[in-house]
Design a protein around this nucleic acid. Sequence first.
DNA 1: AACCATCGACTTTTT
DNA 2: GTCGATGGTT
Length: 731
Amino acid sequence: MDLTHNADVHFFGELNGAQYQAVTSEASRLLVLAGAGSGKTRVLVQRIAWLMTKQDVLPHRILAVTFTNKAAAEMRYRIEKIVGSTTSRLWVGTFHGLSHRILRQHADRANLPENFQIIDADDQLRLIKRLIQERGWDDEMCDPKRACGFINRQKDEGKRASALPPSSLPEITMFMELYRLYEQHCQRAAVVDFAEILLRAYELWRDNPDLLTHYQQRFTHILVDEFQDTNTIQYAWLKLLCTPDNRIMLVGDDDQSIYGWRGAKIENIHRFHKDFSDVVTVRLEQNYRSTSTILAAANALISNNAARLGKELWTQGIQGERLTLYGAFNEIDESRFIVERIRQWCHGGGSYEDIAILYRSNAQSRVLEQALRQGSIPYRVYGGLRFFDRAEIKDVLSYLRLSVNLHDDTAFERVINLPPRGIGERTLASIRDLAKVQQISLWEAAKTYLPSISAGRISNGLRQFFECVEELINNVSALTLPMLVQTVLQRSGLLTYVKTQPGERTQARVENLHELIQAASQFHQAFEENQEATYTHSAETLPSFLSEVALDAGDRDVDNESSIKMMTLHSAKGLEFPLVFLSGMEEGLFPHHRCFHERALLEEERRLCYVGITRAMRKLYLTYAEKRAFAGLSGVNRPSRFIDEIPSQLIEAVNLNAKIMMPSHSAPVKRSKLDDDFPFQLGQRVFHQRFGEGVIISGDGQGETARVQVNFAKEGKKWLVLAYAKLEPVE
DNA sequence: AACCATCGACTTTTT
DNA sequence: GTCGATGGTT
């Protein structure tokens, strides 16, 4: 690292040797194995900057592919900061975003109408359910979720329905037929799902050599982030694009591949070596994030995986504290411990935003949240429903989608009776029938159906709906986007409807709707700035607004807020926190019991644990609960095997804290007792934490399923399962 | 057609 | 325990 002698010290000064090598490599096939916290994004960003400023590569010749919009946005931002100019000609985006852009540009060649729209996973499932019904199958025989999974898997593998070989399995045969129906339906309705975007773009290139050549010649430099997460079709997409004259850099970490279950193929890294003989590999192993103790733990853990490309993280930083392991009595105790240690951290001068609690599955957050609330510790749970996935937002968007494309049946179904117009299942069934027989869209079918309705209530409702949508269509070319959204809210009656619906979420829903207008407004402004236009009506902006909304469901980043963060291990990837709690370190939960039987799955769990450990910068806690009430099963758990895989000298085990009370109800709920005799009698008075005092009026079941009916003074009669409703006898 | 009660499932999630 | 879907009732 004699970079100080380099004339470009101000440019490269902060890069270490391996980073420098990766940034300035002349290799045309470059694979960068970037360990956690090794400055991966910096390398990508610097390399692009280097290409532009030192190699005089024109921005429009560079293609940078990421997995999330957030990563793409950050990359662009950082590049702009370095090169000091806008990068609008540079293509930085997600596989989906870029593919979508190409499909829009060549819709005709891709055999798509100009106004095609994107449906999300939820829309897709609804559509599949409907097709199953229409085909005359029932849900038991043909599980919609499995069918949906099947179709997506085929698409991710690049397979069309027509390309599938016949199967001897009845279920597969059924799915294949459904796949065919689904393809036809989407084509007619002019919608594409997420997997379709990639597949269609791939086929567009594959089947149109002139187009492919154009893009091959244009993108002389290709860079890919998180390469270990690419699936088959994404790899094929890249391979098509990559001629001997293109230069490609892949950045990834096989040890952080945690999305195998949704089609990501680590093997793509090996395949790259096979498909391109002259691959230069650079390893980024110096870590700038964690203490050497944390890294030692991570290295030891991951060394239990076979077939790694091999990588060992190291740091010049401090050794730091040992990991702390706490074996809690139950999940409540675990939460209390975490709360206590959070307090400790803050008393020691730390702040809430330093802290993250990570867990394997979302369901674990509840108990933790409770304890945090009780302890008055501000927290924020990441990764719930995204803004544009909220029901009320999707309702409004459905009206907008219909006004772009009346044949969008998914949108039609969503709002035909929303707000309620007296159009129920039966009317809808007739419309569906008609649509099916005549091979027309639901909108057309409804129009045809209208004259034959005798009931005034129904025909009025339909007519109202038609008028509303048609009026919206007229407004599209007259109003700006935010005005149009406003109009939808009022004209459809959705806003009034939401306001009058009882429930606690009403307020939040109304706010969401206003936020949607806000989002439309921002989009509108950004569009005008880009186009230097003055009054842009929504005919120009609406289609792209809908696409953006579908592809970028608002990665709301919520940092610099003084609260601790809670999220799943999966959503923690790419983030870092000074203090990290890995909670629920139990066999069955983590590694999840569904992964026990297969080595590959277990290794992915281990990688997930590796990701978790390497999020911690200064201090890491591991906690588990010996007993955990989970999904209705109260089980006794052994500590996770991953704990054993960390050298014990790196871990300080904290003993069960005597101050932390064993809940008094634990004694009567011992399972052995339940098996023999019911611990409660009819007429007995009992106490429940939430419902208060009551009297047992009946009971049934045995062992784990034993339950009693209690008549509570305040809450009335309730059935409670003894195994987890912690009832205490009242003397 | 709208509403309430009961049943059953439940790993991870981006686009 | 909680969510969502489903089915029976009004």
